[in-house]
Simulated assay, not measured.
Amino acid sequence: MSDGHDPSQRPLAGPPRTALLAPPAARGEDAGPGEGGQDGTPARSPYRAMPPAERSALWRQRLHEAEAGLTRFLVSRGDEVSLTEWFALQAEIFADLPGDTADPAPWQRIFFRGQALMERFLVRRYGEPVLADWARSNAEVHREVEPDHGRGAADPVHRIARQAELYGSEYEFDDDPGPAADRAALTITHCAIWDYREQARRGGVRLTLASPCTYCTEALSANIRAKGFTPAHRLIAGPTGHGCRWEAAAPGADTPEEA
């Protein structure tokens, strides 16, 4: 897992310059709550109006990144893996897939079940520290399947925002004038993954990790690095619950240590 020398654990810099997407209204969509001000300022939470089909597609992409990353990781180890057990796990992951529907709820359920199964598979065989290696393997898949949108450091931060929106988390991009692509930042003030985990636990899903942050911080940091940027994060907790703050810095930009 992360140690004190991991760049993602560095102290965060001051207010970053953040490159933001245009509000959905500017893209011909109906703007929802928090999606851009009347004065034309960039949206602080621009994905409230993410269409159901787009949400479903992102759940599927995340499942693909995780399962393909696990396959890649197991191959890279070169040790003996019971193919029967591995095939049985894959059968569980992909059991009762939803039909041709834009409803994201079934794909959310499939993703969360698959994530829990894969975490348990790895931790039982190799121990919890191996999750960081799995995260890096997944990030190599992410590098290939996540489109580049030409926004520089804002690209991986927008991916974090889209994931946060899938869970219904509360989040905001930094509202700083002069958007730039050298550094982007996002604060999740309430991480709804914690809420969903508790719902899943009550529904009978066996959870391997005491905290979702154990894997999530490794995965997001690895994804940012895979896209060529330097990550930094800080976990936060307060009246609104668990949250975190993320930065991505472009090569050559001031790093959090240098700020």
Rank of each mutant, 00 (worst) to 15 (best):
E92S: 07
P46C: 10
L83F: 06
G36L: 01
A154H: 00
A95W: 05
V123C: 08
L235T: 01
A219S: 06
P52A: 06
C213V: 02
D175A: 14
G228Q: 02
G228Y: 08
T41N: 11
P7N: 11
G203K: 06
Y215Q: 10
A253W: 13
P24V: 00
T84L: 03
A259Y: 12
D96W: 07
L131D: 05
T214Q: 01
A153L: 01
V123Y: 12
A53E: 12
R109E: 15
H233F: 13
A181Q: 14
T189M: 05
E128F: 08
E247D: 06
D30L: 05
V205L: 15
L220V: 10
A53W: 12
T71E: 11
Q115V: 11
P156D: 04
A116V: 03
N223T: 07
G32D: 12
E257L: 13
R202N: 15
A26V: 08
H5Q: 15
D195E: 13
E128W: 12
R113L: 14
G178D: 01
T189H: 00
G4T: 15
G114E: 09
R197L: 14
E257G: 03
P129N: 12
R10L: 13
A248L: 05
G14H: 14
D96M: 01
W134M: 09
Q90I: 05
F73W: 15
G204K: 08
E257Y: 13
Q115C: 10
A232K: 13
R113F: 09
Q38K: 05
A259S: 14
H5P: 08
R245I: 09
T217D: 06
A184I: 00
Q90N: 15
E54K: 04
E247L: 15
S76M: 13
R55A: 03
F111D: 02
A161C: 11
R120Y: 03
